[in-house]
Computed example of a mutant assay.
Amino acid sequence: MNDAGLSDFAELRKAITRRQHDLYFVAFDLLHLNGHDLRDMALEERREILESVIPAKIRIQFSQALPGEANPSPDR
């Protein structure tokens, strides 16, 4: 993140090569698991499964749910 709190792709690229120990992966959805397609399940159900499969004390964080609707735009 930059000083304004926005994603900074250039800084991410630098961190990937220079500061790997500082990086975390943030997971927010689970589309496949053990060869099973989960995309037909409700997002809330997929997130519950995702939260249950992330082991403790690793560099993967489960994202917090954001308020609002996640409906795709009509032109997609």
Rank of each mutant, 00 (worst) to 15 (best):
A15H: 08
R19G: 06
F25V: 11
R39S: 12
A15Q: 13
R13H: 10
E44N: 11
K14C: 02
E44H: 10
L43I: 12
R46Q: 07
F62E: 01
N34I: 01
H21V: 13
D29E: 11
R46A: 03
A27P: 00
L30M: 07
I49Q: 05
E44L: 05
N2E: 02
G5S: 04
D37W: 04
E44S: 11
F9E: 05
L38A: 02
P55T: 06
A27C: 06
F25T: 09
H36F: 03
L66G: 04
K57I: 04
V26E: 07
P74I: 13
N2Y: 08
G68P: 09
A4I: 02
A4P: 00
K57V: 07
A56Q: 14
R13E: 10
E69D: 13
G5D: 04
M1P: 02
R19M: 11
F28Y: 14
L31Y: 03
L43H: 03
H32N: 12
N71K: 14
E69F: 05
Q64N: 06
R18T: 11
Q61M: 03
A15M: 14
A27D: 01
I16W: 10
H36Q: 15
L30V: 10
K57Y: 15
L38Q: 04
L66K: 09
I60P: 00
A27T: 05
R13L: 03
I58P: 00
Q64K: 13
G35Y: 05
Q64L: 04
L43R: 02
